[in-house]
């Protein structure tokens, strides 16, 4: 190997690029295969409902808390700013627009990634290192269809529902803070109706479905291709969370630029 630092640097970035392309390709193939298999029979609804419970129902509390406090703190900041221009009547629509377009989908997805995406990666990695995935394969079961498809479907279905709840709770949190700060309750609500359009809500929910796909597929990918023992499980879990966060934030920027 050359000792020239420039060549070493080029080699390093070259290896990094090749590795990234390899992972991106393998991730895309796995995700597309899981999605394709999810529409083919046999459908294992019990497995799907179990995953929907894990992704959705079990995340409800943390999502409600996140939505409530996000709406509340955002309202506090907005009131502070808007009072300078006597624009308090715009607080409600601003909070509602921010919650439905951005804060609801993104913060819900980030919270669910921390709770569920990491759990998916940890569970599948543990199954991988203890040969449970090999056992499934030898039994003639397709581990992608049995393990990954229901998780991805559950992510796509449950994230918009959780986001809708976070949106609503966030607006309620903002409403309560606004009243506490002496704003007119009727004005807060009625201006939302005037300014926020249904497209804001729909697009936010579409974004959250994509985030659900991202967090579940990245978690499953990291778990499914884990190498090593307990150390590998830890590494996969960390990578799943970090990569999902980055992918969600980058995806959010791209979708926002296209949608709004």
């Amino acid at each position: 190997m050359s000792t020239n630092p420039l060549i070493q640097m080029v080699a390093f970035f070259g290896r990094l690029a090749l590795e990234s392309i390899f992972h991106l390709g393998r991730y895309s193939i796995l995700s597309l295969r899981a999605l394709a298999l999810s529409v083919l029979p046999p459908w294992r609804l019990r497995t799907l409902f179990r995953q929907m419970e894990l992704v959705g129902v079990n995340s409800l509390f943390v999502v409600i808390l996140t939505g409530l406090f996000t709406g509340a703190v955002f309202t506090l900041q907005v009131i502070y700013g808007f009072r300078r221009f006597s624009a308090e009547s715009m607080v409600g629509p601003t909070v509602a627009t921010a919650m439905t377009r951005e804060l609801g989908p993104v913060l819900t997805s980030l919270m669910v990634t921390g709770r569920v995406g990491s759990a998916m990666a940890a569970e599948l990695s543990a199954m991988k290192v203890t040969e449970q995935i090999d056992a499934l394969t030898v039994m003639g079961a397709d581990p992608v269809k049995y393990l990954i498809s229901p998780r991805i479907l559950a992510g796509i279905i449950m994230l918009p529902l959780l986001t809708a709840i976070a949106d609503a709770v966030g607006v309620v949190g903002g409403y309560l803070v606004a009243i506490g700060k002496g704003l007119d309750p009727g004005q807060f609500a009625s201006r939302i109706e005037d300014i926020v359009v249904i497209g804001d809500v729909y697009n936010g929910l579409i974004k959250s479905a994509v985030f659900g796909l991202i967090l579940a597929s990245v978690g499953c990918y990291m778990g499914f291709y884990t190498k090593g023992g307990a150390e590998g499980v830890g590494r996969s879990t960390t990578h799943a969370v970090v990569c999902s966060y980055v992918a969600i934030l980058v995806g959010d920027f791209i979708m926002t630029a296209v949608m709004f």
């Binding site: 543990a126 199954m127 203890t130 040969e131 090999d134 056992a135 394969t137 030898v138």
Partner: peptide, 15 residues
């Protein structure tokens, strides 16, 4: 594979 059975070294049971 449906005609095979495999006993893994550590069992590989589903936790």
């Amino acid at each position: 594979r449906l005609r095979m059975g495999l006993l893994f070294q550590d069992g590989a049971l589903f936790d």
